[in-house]
Nucleic acid binder design. Structure first.
Length: 755
DNA sequence: GTAGTCACTATTTGA
DNA sequence: TAGTGACTAC
């Protein structure tokens, strides 16, 4: 471990230090906004390591990849190399990792497919259709979320069928057959060797609960220290899993949860605050620490936030305070139209940039719904202010990408019916709906996957050749997938499936874009295959095959991409997306009744409280300048609507608000609209090479010895510090300022000895 | 198999 | 308004 010259404990305030050093037994940390939550979590783990807890005994769970990554990086910064052995990641990714090893005990293949939301919906649609149900009443999205919430509450299809509460709710919504859909859905996923996102949790629960081969104690013994970030966002099922891991005879109950009930904004997704309240009941000896000092915002902002959240009755009492006295008061802008709102926000941004010397990436515009972004885009463009938008269609949800990935999935798991349906006739190869329907019917009757039926059906002569060709294509891919790298198979698919050829013959710009996207995916696969750097937690034995590639991307979203963070631009995003972030200047826009709070929430006090917490999250993102805007009228659903100012505006004390300024008419500034948003965002990160590849002659693995100076194609010069028994070298690259130490897998490494 | 038309709906979003 | 999905007609 890296020597720590200073004591990291000195960087903490009294409460933070207590929360960090109370290592034994259950601990609950209630962390207000800007109170150094991640710092506490980081240092607590570092403190565990310094107290000789082996890193692999630490399980740190987060909700997003981004949070997980940040946590790992910060631990690495303080503790150095050992950090990568910590089990830190999202609930879903870590459980998926465990299930890749244990799934066979639950009668799943270990290389099970992960169905994303689209796969689930399409499967549900198919079930609805075959059951002959009304598509309008049985909206696939609604059905999916019912099933999801059933799973998250450990209600099996059988229990669902006899659960009076669920049943009466469904009858009320004219969906009495939902329990049947649920049953069929579960069976079909199972048959396809597929788990949906909820299954990653549910099957993990089953594994521990049913305890085949006494597997539970294996993980109880492994994870001696459990930490959970954003605990207020956990659902019932997640908490049940945590309890199975932590509660057992003679357990030390070393579980630490960090969260803030006031920032719980995901109840619509099944998160329940009850878990926080329940925690102290389940663990009576819990030590509770409240982090109440806010290091982020100035006094007016903190005061307003405190006042607003007080309107919510049900909450853990705490008083957030700051040492940053005074500062700017909150500015409220009243506009007549949504267009004027956009213009005045852009005006104010220009003004702030000049007066306070803010750079664009210190500014964010936060809205309740993504649809609101357009007006702000238009006006920012007029001023030539660069901006970046979060949300919207991600790279992986593009059709052409999903199609190509479907081929890959099928090559790894032929039972994957969703993938099969996607590509059996894409590109068109003459396998029409009637043929597909025949296959599906037979699969249903025999309760097997569609793939298994392909060889048994007597097709018409024309269909038979088409099906035969398709089967041959997939079989070739399967063979290749066994021996070759993911990149080789991906290239084979793109060349031989006909997808790219089809686009090229189209010749439109649209098609051209799609080809570029596919190329970007291929580049991404190649980069992944050639990447010889071990990520934190990655095993040195990991192969570079298709199955492994699919595993790494199945739980990835490109929401979390670092390129966006570095560009100098104003951020536009929904309030939900802004959670955990901070900006010098924040604009919360569209503060009107029916919009924020949303009209969907007006009827229930619970949902209104959640809207208020959402508003609380929004205003506490601001460090120094907070501007709130509302408009008299705006276009909603294609109609002009008139909304009153939001009730939340009235809840802000006058003392914290800037005296209202008269509305000054502003002449429109005409600027050249500049295209700032590239439609296409390549997956591959381009990194400058350290030297010309032509001059580069990598040495064989056996020649590499510790102490040697080497050159790496990407990272440049470095010194081999150590090579372990798995041929993983620890190399220090002096050019890299952050994390100069990298773990390099020598079997894939491109290293040239220089002395 | 596909293009064109019509009807419908409309938060937030992680993995 | 805008985007999607389903149905119809060729």
């Amino acid at each position: 471990m890296k020597e720590v010259g200073f004591s990291y404990l000195d960087e903490l305030n009294a409460v933070q230090r207590q929360a960090v050093t109370a290592l034994d037994g259950p601990v609950m940390v209630i962390a207000g906004p800007g109170s150094g939550k991640t710092r506490v979590l980081t240092y607590r783990i570092v403190h565990l390591l310094n107290n000789n807890v082996p890193p692999y005994q630490i399980l740190a769970l987060t909700f997003t990849n981004k949070a997980a990554r940040e946590l790992k990086h910060r631990i690495e910064d303080v503790a150095g190399g050992n950090a990568n052995k910590i089990w830190a990641g999202t609930f879903h990714s870590l459980f998926a990792r465990i299930l890749r090893v244990e799934a066979h005990r639950l009668d799943y293949p270990n290389d099970f497919t992960i169905y994303d939301t689209d796969d689930s919906k399409s499967l549900i649609n198919e079930i609805i259709k075959t059951m002959g149900l009304d598509k309008k009443a049985y909206n696939s999205g609604a059905v999916r979320s019912r099933i999801s919430s059933a799973k998250s509450n450990l209600i099996t299809p059988k229990m669902y069928a006899v659960n009076e509460e669920m049943q009466s709710y469904d009858r009320m919504n004219r969906r009495p057959m939902l329990f049947k859909i649920y049953e069929a859905y579960v069976n079909k996923c199972k048959r396809a060797g597929a788990m949906d996102f909820d299954d990653l949790l549910l099957q993990m629960f089953r594994l521990l609960y049913q305890n085949p081969d006494n597997i539970r104690s294996k993980y109880q013994e492994q994870f001696k220290y459990v930490l959970v970030d954003e605990f207020q966002d956990t659902n019932f099922l997640q908490y049940e899993i945590l309890k199975l891991l932590v509660i057992y005879e003679n357990s030390a109950n070393n579980i630490c949860i960090v969260g803030d009930d006031a920032q719980s904004i995901y109840s619509f997704r099944g998160a329940t605050i009850e878990n926080i309240l329940q925690f102290t009941h389940d663990f009576p000896e819990t030590q509770t620490y409240k982090l109440e000092q806010n290091y982020r915002s100035t006094e007016h902002i903190v005061a307003a936030a405190n006042e607003v959240i007080n309107y919510n009755k049900k909450q853990i009492q705490k008083k957030i305070w700051t040492e940053k006295d005074g500062g700017q008061r909150i500015k409220i802008i009243k506009a007549m139209t949504d267009n004027e709102e956009g213009r005045r926000v852009a005006d104010t941004i220009v003004e702030q940039k000049n007066r306070f010397h803010l750079s664009s990436n210190e500014i964010a515009i936060l809205y309740r719904t993504n649809a609101q972004s357009r007006v702000f885009e238009e006006h920012l463009r007029r001023f030539n202010i660069p901006y970046k938008i979060y949300g919207g269609l991600s790279f992986y949800s593009r059709k052409e990408i999903k199609d190509l990935i479907a081929y890959m999935r099928l090559s790894v798991n032929e039972k994957d019916d969703e993938a099969l349906k996607r590509v059996i006739n894409y590109p068109k190869r003459g396998i029409g709906t009637s043929t597909i329907e025949k296959i599906r019917q037979l699969a249903d009757d025999n309760e097997v996957s569609m793939w298994e039926c392909l060889s048994q059906i007597k097709f018409s002569a024309r269909a038979a050749t088409s099906v035969g060709k398709f089967v041959q294509l997939i079989k070739t891919c399967q063979e290749k997938a066994k021996t070759e790298t993911a990149y080789a198979v991906a290239v084979y698919i793109s060349k031989n499936s006909g997808i790219v050829t089809g686009f090229k013959s189209e010749g439109t710009i649209e098609a051209q874009n799609r080809v570029e996207n596919i190329n970007a995916l291929l580049d991404g696969v190649q980069e992944w295959v050639e990447d010889d750097v071990l990520e934190e937690g990655e095993e040195a034995t990991s192969k570079k095959g298709l199955a492994e590639f699919l595993q790494t991307i199945s739980l990835m979203t490109d929401q979390d991409d670092s390129e966006k963070e570095q560009t100098e631009a104003v951020t536009l995003m929904s309030v939900h997306a802004a959670k955990g972030l901070e900006y010098k200047s924040v604009f919360v826009v569209g503060l009107e009744e029916n919009l924020f709070p949303s009209y969907m929430a007006l009827s229930s006090p619970e949902q209104l409280d959640e809207e208020r917490r959402l508003f609380y999250v929004a205003i506490t993102r601001a460090e120094q300048y907070l501007t709130l805007t509302h408009s008299n009228s705006r276009y909603q659903f294609g109609q002009m609507r008139f909304n009153d100012p939001s009730r939340f505006l009235e809840e802000i004390p006058d003392a914290n608000v800037e005296a209202s300024i008269s509305i000054h008419r502003q002449k429109d500034v005409i600027g050249t609209p500049k295209k700032l948003q590239g439609m296409f965002k390549p997956l591959a990160k381009t990194r400058a090479l350290a030297m010309d590849p032509k001059d580069f002659k990598p040495n064989a693995m056996k020649d590499l010895k510790p102490g040697m100076r080497i050159i790496h194609l990407k990272f440049g010069e470095g010194k081999i510090k150590d090579i372990d028994d798995r041929n993983v070298a620890t190399i220090i690259f002096n050019k890299l300022t952050e994390n100069p130490e990298k773990r390099i897998m020598l079997q894939y490494a491109k290293l040239q000895i220089i002395e």
